[in-house]
Design a protein around this nucleic acid. Structure first.
Lengths: 343, 343
DNA sequence: TTGAAAGCGCTAACAA
DNA sequence: TTGTTAGCGCTTTCAA
């Protein structure tokens, strides 16, 4: 039987086919393909040639079962539409690319029951670690995470107790800091615009920190407006119109993300409202994407890539050394005043 | 040994543990957990209870090896930062959610050698199908795809020969249509702004179609400007300044994507340039995200979600019925004139 | 309706 | 440096 016959057999190729084609034992073929153990140069070449000729692709399923090792890291995030999460993923990939580990992404759409399902699916592939957004999970999810006996890194948020490790920023603090910056500049009638927050815990915590810090200054949020669904420029525009029509005396608008904030900016510029003189604006995330707008929105950088990198580093290190656990990394977001907040 | 002892053993739980805990054979436990075959209600309950008590999560690796079936679909795209691809993924997920299949995403960063690596990794998990962006691949990648003997759907682009199935739009035609629309409105001095295109084949094809259609009208691109790196508003702004400074007599700017087009719009509005009177603008993609800008950019919808849905449908159908192959679905992008092209 | 036996394709551990 | 053996945890197949 020629190599062509082997390659054309109507079944996936196995190590055994490469072994046959190269005249080397399966075990040695396996060693060559994994760069493991000492193999003579001649044998190595022979094997590699045969594998290439056949177009052999190893079966990781069998490999993983035999070695009890799976070089996958489950990364579970709420959404891919959000700009923020792809940036976190970049950070994760950047670090994992230097290791044998590979990220596998799951998306929950901000739904706890979907998170549970995605987690279950991913854990059933026995990954080397889990990176997931947020500290709030269903009981079942927490139970799975604890039972998995692998590194678990909860990211984005640090206001709460992690199952194992955590990397992120304090959104409560982010809200407080922004409130302070706003009050310092003399703004007094402050409006808030954001998502309906039952499931966006980070937005909720920012809001809580924000109102708390205002309260300390004897202020409160004068009006608020909420929306559902993706964060788009046009939403921000509409909401801003609504809130300013209802409460024309507002002198500051705090948005729960940059995208709707930018929409608000567009509205104000359209209407000839002086920003930041008549109305100041601020968002959250530090989305560089929007840098080209007429004015740079005041915002706070959420350290997205950094969070991804740190989380990946923790998983990678623990995959190496079997010790460690419970790491807590709290990053500090930087306030960017931009051009929409008086200074 | 109690269930707690079993659950606390320092190793992952197996079917055998559930079998022991429930007093039912491994085989029957397996049947219950997969909802396969006839199992008495009493037995089923006993097993489910034991599995829940232990916190058992099945090992898909072993299952996949034994059954020779893996319900994964590899989805390989150039980037997640691009807005366009997450939308394709939404379409894919939407359809696969109705099936036992699960998407697994790989990112190539527009690099053929990375595509090759990602493809190799993914194929080594023996997925049920592959969905990947573009028709241009390295020889090795094509060889792997052909050897895989699973449904392969190449998406986004239909100007070329697919390995197997394809779903997308003709970017050459998209470029031609936009050129026609521009010429029809009397624009004559036309500039092009886009990515350096050696690896972005779709942008290149649009450009080719564009110049070809202009040529038919006896026109050619009067000036052009290229950039590298992510497509951001600020890039579009800068490039527009550059090209309009160099060629102040341009009366139309065609951008290779909406993001830089929007940046150009920002620049023109800033400078008090009358759009679309003095200068017309058009982009590509139909990114709804930018709808809130002062003017809606003329653009062409790339049918992203639809492409994802159709590709997923093909894979799902072929996973069911073992026949089929070579499907070709050419979608028609719709021109959106917006407010930046005279009518 | 349930169970027993025989692998799936690979790798760990050991032997030569 | 190379080869042999015995599983990894499940499912398929067949028997009871």
């Amino acid at each position: 039987m020629s190599n062509d016959d082997i390659a054309n057999a109507n079944r996936p190729l196995t190590l055994r086919d490469v072994s046959l084609a190269s005249g080397v034992s399966e075990m040695t073929v396996s060693r060559v393909l994994r760069n493991r153990g000492d193999v003579s140069k001649a044998t190595r070449e022979k094997v590699l040639q045969a594998a290439r000729d056949l177009g052999y692709v190893p079966n990781k399923i069998a490999g993983a079962l035999a070695s009890q090792r799976v070089n996958l890291v489950a990364v579970i995030i709420p959404s891919l539409q959000n700009l923020v999460f792809p940036e976190v993923l970049s950070g994760v990939s950047e670090v994992l690319d230097e290791t044998p580990l590979q990220p596998v992404v799951g998306v929950t759409n901000y739904k706890p029951e979907r998170e549970e399902k995605v987690l279950y699916e991913m854990l059933s592939w026995r990954p080397s670690g889990v990176i997931l957004a947020g500290l709030e999970h269903s009981d079942a999810s927490r139970a799975m995470l604890m039972a998995a006996r692998i590194p678990i890194v909860e990211i984005m948020d640090t206001d709460g107790e992690p199952v194992d490790a955590m990397v992120g920023i304090s959104h409560r603090r982010a809200g407080r800091e922004m409130a302070k910056a706003i009050v310092t500049q003399g703004y007094k009638k402050i409006g808030f615009l954001g998502t309906k927050m039952p499931l966006d815990h980070r937005a909720r915590k920012r809001f809580e920190g924000f109102t708390e810090a205002l309260a300390k200054e004897g202020l409160e949020v004068a009006d608020q407006e909420f929306y559902e669904g993706g964060s788009a420029l046009v939403k921000g525009r509409e909401m801003t119109e609504t809130i300013l029509t209802r409460s024309p005396d507002l002198d500051f608008l705090y948005y729960s993300n940059d995208m709707i904030g930018a929409g608000g900016l567009m509205y104000c510029l359209d209407k000839g409202i002086d920003v930041p003189g008549q109305v100041g604006l601020a968002g959250f995330n530090g989305v560089r994407l929007l840098d080209g707008l007429p004015k740079r929105l005041a915002t706070m950088d959420a350290c997205r890539a950094e969070i991804g990198r740190e989380a990946a580093r923790i998983v990678a290190e623990r995959a190496e050394a079997e010790d460690g656990g419970g790491e807590r990394i709290v990053l500090t977001p930087t306030l960017q005043l931009g051009d929409t907040l008086k200074r």
